[in-house]
């Protein structure tokens, strides 16, 4: 169990190295997909089938969106003089971060022994209180329903934002051509239309 998890996470790390360092954007996106699908298998092994299903669906959508961004565009590699400052500063920062996180992780509950102060109550009474056999669903839609409302709001806002940014035409200034196009009658037009009677 632990060894298989270790191998899967190692595959994820290798996939992300390929995704970060490869020159071609399309192969970078595909490597990102490798990371996501391995993540889905890990979720399935950790006793979270709902999240595994969601991860597969979301991963496919992410790949479609990212391929849309890369396939119709010029995806030649970006060459040029590299600044050394971001590399050096980020490497120093990441080294410090990993060292400190190693000490911080010792304080967490060990792997396989979660605290579960709140969630034991959910597991014990969730099915009786909400009538849902899947406890994740009962937490999501009943005990923490406001979180789900907030999620729907964030999702709605981001999709509206993407729609507004991608829209071709904004509102036009009112001008001669527009009034003719949209059927707004000028004085001459009204005269013309009355001459017919």
């Amino acid at each position: 169990m632990g060894i298989i998890l270790l191998i899967l996470i190692a595959i994820m790390i290798i996939g992300s190295i390929v995704a970060i360092e490869t020159k071609n954007l399309l192969s970078s996106v595909i490597s990102c997909g490798v990371v996501g699908f391995c993540l889905s298998i890990v979720f399935l092994m950790l006793g979270a089938p709902d999240i595994a299903i969601t991860q597969v669906v979301v991963e496919i959508l992410i790949l479609v969106i990212l391929i849309r961004a890369t396939i119709t565009t010029d995806n030649t590699a970006i060459e040029g003089a590299r600044d050394t400052f971001p590399y050096v500063s980020s490497l120093i920062f990441f080294g410090l971060f990993l060292i400190f996180s190693w000490f911080a992780l010792q304080e967490l509950p060990r792997f396989g022994e979660p605290l579960m102060r709140v969630s034991r109550e959910y597991l014990k009474t969730g099915a009786a209180k909400t009538g849902a056999t899947n406890i994740v669903t009962s937490v999501l839609l009943d005990f923490r329903g406001y979180d789900t409302v907030g999620e729907a709001t964030v999702l709605f806002t981001s999709i509206i934002g993407a729609f507004v940014i991608l829209r071709r035409k904004g509102r036009k200034e009112k001008s001669e051509a527009d009034s003719e196009k949209f059927g707004i009658l000028e004085d001459d037009d009204i005269k013309d239309s009355f001459e017919g009677f």
């Binding site: 999240i51 979660p114 959910y122 597991l123 999501l140 964030v154 999702l155 999709i159």
Partner: peptide, 25 residues
């Protein structure tokens, strides 16, 4: 296993998709 992080991560995955769509736009 603990159902609480699972429910919250489910939320987070879907929000990630929305923000990704905005970034790509």
């Amino acid at each position: 296993v603990d159902p609480l992080p699972q429910a919250l991560v489910l939320t987070s995955i879907v929000i990630g998709l929305g923000t990704l769509a905005l970034m790509v736009a």
